[in-house]
């Protein structure tokens, strides 16, 4: 196990609420690291609707998801949060009063006094295409990500999809695969044009196959795939022989491992009090879309409010002997100094 990263707070989720929590905790001198499963900050704002307008941020008549993300990123910069992207929190274990040991799926270990779950609708994970019986092949023949390219050497690989993930892995795995087959529902691709050109070149020189159609079923036994039933756009179904399938159907939100952290859940949400937005485990807070309490509204502005109140209580865990004096950023010289504007 690697040497733990010791800091005050760990925020799970780099969406708007997680980012603003960095700010509110920063004003109270709480240092935070932020972990997110996506490869970028911004959460749903960045992943689902970067270009879409948001009309209910107080004082900002209209801002896009990306605009809000960039604004928050700039706003928290004075506090130098450390981001750990592309990582999912796997375990949260209470080891002190309060002290938590938190691990990620890439093997990082944190030891923190406060955990803030700001995970929104859960973690973004690859969408499982609704092909009957696909579960039986997952992990043996069906994969949603490529961890080690070598695992695909000499395999007959069927990649399904038309975006950059599908095209990139088609191009990367084609040289080592026994045969590469790309399946997409139409002869147009969302992916980068140069990747599309490269793929078409491989097809025209006979180095791989491109099939237009959709998967309707799988064939095989004991988790070993032998073929995929493919419905062409003419409605005819044929079997495409393959031993490996990589479907790239975008991302969906799943609650993920939160259920194993000792935090009470209710209908996949985390009940909290409305004084500090703390869970049933002292020192673990939940803010934003993932929490629930009487009257809860899933609004970004509610998550901001929750972060501000959470930070007050968090500061008592991080600095048990310090008296928290309530101050305004407009007038407090000490807060302005922290913000680098004093």
């Amino acid at each position: 196990m690697s040497e733990p990263i010791r800091t005050d707070a760990l925020i799970i989720g780099a969406g708007p609420c997680g980012l603003f929590a960095v700010f509110e905790m920063g004003l109270l001198d709480i240092k935070a690291h932020v972990v997110d499963i996506l490869d970028k900050v911004g959460g749903q704002c960045a992943e689902l609707y970067p270009e879409k307008p948001i009309y209910d941020i107080p004082g900002i008549p209209m801002i896009t998801g990306q605009g809000l993300t960039e604004g928050l990123r700039a706003q928290v910069q004075p506090f130098h949060p450390v981001f750990h992207l592309n990582e999912m929190i796997e375990t949260v274990e209470k080891i002190g009063d309060p002290l938590f040991r938190v691990t990620t799926d890439s093997g990082k270990v944190f030891e923190v006094k406060v955990v803030v779950i700001a995970a929104g609708g859960g973690s973004f994970q690859p969408k499982r295409p609704p092909v009957p019986g696909i579960e039986a092949y997952e992990g043996t023949s069906v994969f949603y990500a490529v961890r080690r390219m070598e695992d695909f050497r000499d395999r007959t690989v069927l990649i399904v999809g038309g975006g950059d993930s599908a095209l990139d892995w088609t191009l990367n795995l084609q040289p080592i695969a026994k045969r590469m087959i790309l399946l997409h529902r139409r002869d147009e691709f969302r992916g980068a044009p140069h990747s599309v050109d490269q793929m078409r070149e491989l097809v025209s020189t006979g180095k791989m196959d491109l099939i237009i159609g959709q998967v309707t079923g799988l064939e095989g036994a004991n988790g070993r795939l032998s073929g995929a039933m493919v419905k062409g756009n003419d409605g005819k179904i044929s079997t495409v022989a393959c031993d490996t399938m990589l479907p790239f159907f975008g991302l969906t939100m799943k609650l993920g491992p939160v259920a194993n952290w000792g935090v009470t859940l209710k209908d996949n949400l985390i009940p909290v009090d409305t004084e500090a937005y703390e869970t049933n485990v002292p020192g673990i807070f939940a803010i934003g879309d993932i929490n629930t309490y009487p009257g809860k509204l899933k609004l970004i502005l509610s998550g901001f409010h929750e972060g501000a109140l959470m930070a007050q209580k968090a500061s008592r865990y991080v600095f048990p002997d310090k008296r928290v004096v309530f101050q305004y950023t407009t007038s407090s010289t000490s807060l302005q100094k922290k913000l680098g504007v004093g």
């Binding site: 969408k127 295409p129 609704p130 092909v131 999809g161 038309g162 975006g163 997409h184 529902r185 139409r186 147009e188 969302r190 959709q214 309707t216 159907f249 975008g250």
Partner: peptide, 11 residues
């Protein structure tokens, strides 16, 4: 929308 339909099933 056509791009997003790539993620749907039985299109």
């Amino acid at each position: 929308e056509e791009d997003m339909l790539d993620f749907a099933y039985d299109v």
